[in-house]
């Protein structure tokens, strides 16, 4: 999954990721723990998360 330039760094995605796979500092960054489940994408208020089809 990919985070695009819309990301504002609000951290909302990090609080819904069950794998603790998102780090946020000004922007979100996905770590190796990500399993591409796509949950975080639903919670992003600015459509910054793209999950590969």
């Amino acid at each position: 999954m990919k985070i695009n330039e819309n990301c504002v760094g609000c951290g909302q995605c990090a609080s819904f990721c069950k794998k603790g796979a998102i780090e946020v500092k000004g922007k979100a960054r996905v770590t190796d723990a990500c399993v591409d489940c796509g949950i975080c994408m639903l919670y992003c208020p600015v459509k910054a998360i793209e999950v590969p089809a």
Partner: peptide, 10 residues
């Protein structure tokens, strides 16, 4: 715990 930033459309 968490650092959250807000600007532009949010």
């Amino acid at each position: 715990l968490l650092i959250q930033s807000y600007h532009d459309s949010w």
